Structure formats: structure tokens, C-alpha cells
Simulated scan of single mutants.
Amino acid sequence: MTVKIPRDKENDYTREAAEARRTFAAEKTNAKLNHVGQFSFEPTVLQGNIENFIGVAQIPIGLAGPLLVNGEYAKGEFFVPLATTEGTLVASYNRGMKLLRESGGVTTTVVDDAMQRAPVFVFPSAREARDFSVWIKENFDEIKGRAEETTSVGKLRDVQQFPASRFLYLRFNFTTGDAAGQNMVGKATKAACDWIQFAYPKKIERYQLEGSFATDKKTSFVNTLHTRGKRVIAEATIPADKLKEIMHVSVEKVFQARLASQFGGYLAGVNNNGAHSANGITAIFIACGQDVANVAESSAAAVYAEITKSGDYYFSITIPSL
């Protein structure tokens, strides 16, 4: 009989339950878990966040900054926590933040906001799928109402349609406030789809709640074009003298390097024609307790740079799925 991981049916979120599992793991693997078992919070706060809790992984956090941000909501100087074991990462970001600060800061703009769930509906033929498409458009207000009954924060913005063969993929786009909102929109979309199945007067062969058109935690063309999460643009103009003083390089040489690396990225087929923005995003996600797997789509970026008429360096990065 397979030995099972210990669980407490009455209350599995206690220090005792975690210790029982650490003891079990140590016996089965000969691993020493002394540091894993040292944490400062009560396990009761973890319900809904993790199962079979045994302890914590300790990751070093460095502090970079201040970063001067000229945003519509975030304004001023900010110190940025970065969790990493990659040497020089914090130092590199700290140096870049110094350059931006000396150059007047970075201007940030959120240009789109949408979190998705993308169900797929299957019909006997493409014509039935097309009829369903028309019905969805005609009944959007009711669909929106059913979805929003499940959440006080999420708002259904629109439903995009992508027909293929006898399938119709529906991309439900929600705004979710300050939450990432994947679970929120999943629940809301399920409520809407349950009503659709009940109310649609014709035959639906079957449907599934996610048809992989939301491309959750994957890089995709559809997210790059249509946004998943927040679509953010950050831009700054770096004076030539500041670039030379702090980075010890001329505007012309930086721009030449940008063109060469951009060309190489095109040849390689990358999803980001800039540098490693995923490094900083990952380090912030870990430091702040975000779902780090979302770096898969958050790593996509489009960088644009030019030398201004005054000889300074304009640089921008568009992150379509943050």
C-alpha cells in the first residue's frame, strides 16, 4: 500500500500538522528540513493558498532604488524589493534606477486592462457556431449581468469571438481592480456559461470553461495584441551627458547595440526584443508574494528606442500582459 502524506482532517493548517509532514518528508528522503520549519506566521492564514504545508523557502531580498516614477497613480520615489540569488541583479537595477532618477524619472502609462477566461463552445457544424455567435452579441447585457453577480470587483468589459471549424472560442475580458483576478474571472465566466447553456434555444454539443485561448501563464500572440492583465508602457529620455557620466557609454554606441540585438532577437523569434525584463519582474513577484508563473506572459515586451534631435536617448518598453 502506498504511504500517504500526513493530513489532519480536523485542522490541517497548524504548526503540528506542518511538523508531522516535515518529519514524514525527512524520513522518506533523508533530507534535513530545519530551516524550512522556521517561519514567523501562523499556518491558519494559508487556507486557500497552499495544501500539505510543511514550511517556507527562504529567498534573499535586496533593495534597489529609489526609482523615480511619473505615473498616473504611482508618483514619486520608490524603493523596490527584489528577491533573487542572481549576483549583480540588484546592483544592475540599482544603477539603472540611478540613471533614470538623474534623467527626470520614468513615465508609466496603463493603456489597457483585461483579465480573461476563454470558454469554447462546440456545435455540429460551422453554421450553428455562426448562429450562436450572433446570439452572444445580442444577449451581451444578460451575459454581463450573470457574470458580475459572482463578484463585487470584476466587471465584464466585452466578449471577443474567434470561430474555427465548428468551434467558437469566446474570450471574456474583465477588469479586476487591483487583483490579478484569474480565479475571479473563472468563477464569473462559469456563471455566465451556465446561463448561456440554459438560455440558448438551439443545440450546443458541448462546452468547456477554458479552451486555452486565454493562454494563462503562456506567451502568445493573442495576449501580445489584446492584453492579459495590464498593458503598461514605460518611457524615459536619457540625456547624453547622464548616459556618459553614469554608464560610461555614448548614445550612439547604445543605439547601435540596440539595433544589433533587436535584429538578433528577430532572427531568433523571441517574444521580447529588449533586455531581460523578466529578471526584474520575477524578483518583484517573489518578493511581494505574487504568482510567479505569470512571468510566462509578463516577460513579453516590445522595446523602442531612438536618438532625439537634441542627441539624447529616448527609450520605451511596452509590456502587453503584466
Rank of each mutant, 00 (worst) to 15 (best):
D291F: 09
H35R: 14
E51G: 08
K155D: 02
M115F: 08
L259A: 13
Y266R: 11
Q38L: 15
V56L: 04
E77R: 02
Y313S: 11
I59Y: 02
L322C: 05
N30K: 11
D112A: 10
T23Q: 11
G48A: 08
D158K: 10
A302P: 00
M184Y: 10
G280A: 14
I307H: 14
Y93Q: 03
V56H: 03
R130M: 13
K217R: 14
F140V: 06
D178L: 13
T224G: 07
P163K: 09
G71K: 04
L67P: 03
K187G: 01
A240L: 09
H35I: 14
A287V: 06
Q208A: 06
Y13R: 07
S92Y: 03
D241G: 05
K202A: 14
T175E: 10
G211L: 12
A260H: 13
L89V: 06
L82I: 14
L170A: 05
T227V: 07
N223H: 04
Q197V: 13
E245Q: 15
N272I: 12
G264C: 14
I196S: 04
K242A: 07
K137W: 03
S152H: 12
G265F: 09
A191R: 13
I59D: 00
I54V: 13
W195R: 02
D158F: 03
L322E: 00
T107A: 08
S321W: 00
F172Y: 10
Q262W: 10
E86V: 09
A180Q: 06
D241I: 11
V134E: 09
I143T: 01
D112Q: 06
I5H: 05
A188S: 14
V69L: 09
V295L: 13
V3R: 00
N139F: 02
P163V: 05
P60L: 10
G65I: 06
W195I: 10
K32R: 12
H35N: 15
N70G: 00
R231M: 01
F172I: 06
N139P: 02
G76A: 04
F79P: 03
F263T: 13
T215I: 07
L322Q: 00
G96H: 07
T84C: 01
N139D: 01
F162L: 12
N173D: 04
E205F: 11
R7M: 07
Q256E: 15
E138C: 01
I50N: 02
I204Q: 09
T150D: 04
L63C: 08
L209I: 08
A287T: 05
A17F: 07
G105M: 05
A57S: 08
E205M: 10
L259Y: 10
R130P: 00
N183D: 15
V106P: 00
L33D: 07
Q47E: 14
R117M: 11
E235C: 09
G105A: 05
D158Q: 06
